[in-house]
Design a protein around this nucleic acid. Structure first.
Length: 383
RNA sequence: GUGGAAUUGGUGAAGUGGUUAACACGCUAGAUUGUGGCUCUAGUAUGCAAGGGUUCGAUUCCCUUAUUCCACC
């Protein structure tokens, strides 16, 4: 089936909205956070552990699975769900982000994108048609259009040219799309330019997709710019379709995204920082390697219901991460993802109670203390 | 007991009579936003066994002491 978004309630003071999405694997509430499982595994976690985190959809990646083990192998295994034994909805990214992270500008042409395999340097060529064909075979529940995620900053001229190409790519992909149990999303690009975002959104809507993504954020721009990019996109998207802000993120960015009308988020942050010994807490990010936790026999968060917090102390987790024991990063991944899914649970309640702005203010006060979070620049790529 | 060699940070160590004592590990912090990479960045000996001497200047040369190792008795 195609996914179906049901808008249940708008928050009174912002553009935040509470709703549900019906999928092949059940109905889930939004706003929601999707853990990233690029290579058909949420790094370190078993499917049972993913269910326990109450996340809903997970995300896998076309580019990575195309290279290894290959979409045909996964197809012969019975599709992505069977292959990884995950009985929940899966969304596949198209490889568009890898245009940003792995390809150079001169590798991008109207036809598609030249890559050099990050594994062995083999020359690869990914096109919108190929990306959709791979995703059809992977049999994910939601497929993404193949887009170009442009760097920041980008000139207006480049962003305009790129948006037009991304639109043509979206149409080309849609034409060959042929998996009836899969949904297809279009991706809004346009950099920081409102008229380009608007144009892109309206054209995608005209074309007709099952949902819409907002791409091209968190690529080195500051937070204010990112929030503008989001507003410039959601503003022009229909209310009866789901909105997915790609690659975001940071707890505060999720809150700001929800306030601007976003329903779904995904981000590598919870699992990546876990592997580097960091944990989200409502009083800010903490690094479990810090010596101050050596004899801290309390959980990461007293009131967290995750497996890590219910069973282990900071001192023990510090011991594990100091020795590079894999249980350490597993426990931190569980906690960090659960932190974000609990955050979205809170935000859903706030939308019902019309108090999301107070929640945000309070969250910022706890999370950043005296620091002004808008002044916190995201560290740019390639610095 | 006799002869010889050695002694540099938390560890393994490089080094030279002359500006900020190499490097590695460890340790201490920080980064991380549609995941190539348990990765990247930064800090970490006012000090070269202790004391004295030579010298404009000594971790580097000399002496004494201490400790360790090796060989012989």
């Amino acid at each position: 089936m195609k996914i179906k978004y049901n808008l249940i309630k708008n928050e009174e003071n912002t553009s935040a909205r509470y709703g549900t999405i019906e999928t092949n694997y059940g109905t889930y509430e939004t706003p929601m956070f999707m853990p990233v499982g690029t290579r058909a595994t949420v790094k370190g976690l078993s499917p049972d552990e993913i269910y326990a985190i109450k996340s809903g959809i997970i995300l896998a990646n076309t580019y990575h699975l195309w290279l290894r083990p290959g979409e045909d192998l996964i197809n012969r295994a019975g599709g992505l769900h069977k292959f990884m034994n995950y009985q929940g909805p899966i969304l596949t990214d198209s490889g568009g982000f890898q245009v940003f992270s792995l390809a150079r500008p001169k590798d991008i042409s109207e036809e598609g994108v030249k890559f050099k395999s990050h594994i062995d340097g083999t020359k690869l060529f990914l096109t919108p048609e190929k990306s959709i064909e791979i995703q059809n075979k992977l049999d994910s529940d939601i497929a993404m259009s193949f887009d170009e995620c442009i760097p920041y900053p980008a000139t207006y001229e480049y962003a305009k040219e790129s948006v037009e190409r991304t639109l043509r790519w979206a149409k080309r992909g849609k034409k060959v799309f042929n998996n009836p149990r899969q949904s297809l999303f279009g991706i809004v690009q346009g950099g920081e330019y409102e008229d380009l975002r608007k144009h892109c959104a309206l054209e995608l809507v005209k074309e007709g997709f099952d949902g819409f993504s907002i791409g091209g954020t968190s690529v080195g721009e500051n937070k204010e710019t990112m929030y503008k990019m989001v507003s410039y996109s959601t503003k022009y998207l229909p209310t009866d379709k789901v909105r997915y802000l790609m690659g975001v993120g940071d707890p505060i960015d999720i809150i700001e995204g929800v306030i601007r009308g976003v329903d779904i988020f995904d981000c590598v942050l919870p699992t990546r920082i876990a592997r580097h010994a960091n944990a989200f807490t409502k009083y800010g990010k903490i690094n479990l390697k810090n010596s101050k936790f050596k004899e801290d026999f309390t959980p990461i968060e007293e009131d967290c219901d995750c497996y890590a917090c219910k069973n282990f102390t900071k001192a023990y987790i510090r011991h594990l991460v100091t020795l590079d024991e894999m249980l350490g990063s597993r426990l931190l991944s569980i906690h960090n993802i659960r932190f974000l899914t609990r955050l979205t649970e809170d935000l859903r309640e706030c939308i019902k109670n019309n108090n999301i702005l107070e929640y945000k203010e309070n969250f910022i006060k706890n999370y950043y203390g005296d620091k002004d979070y808008l002044k916190i620049e995201t560290t740019g790529q390639g610095e």
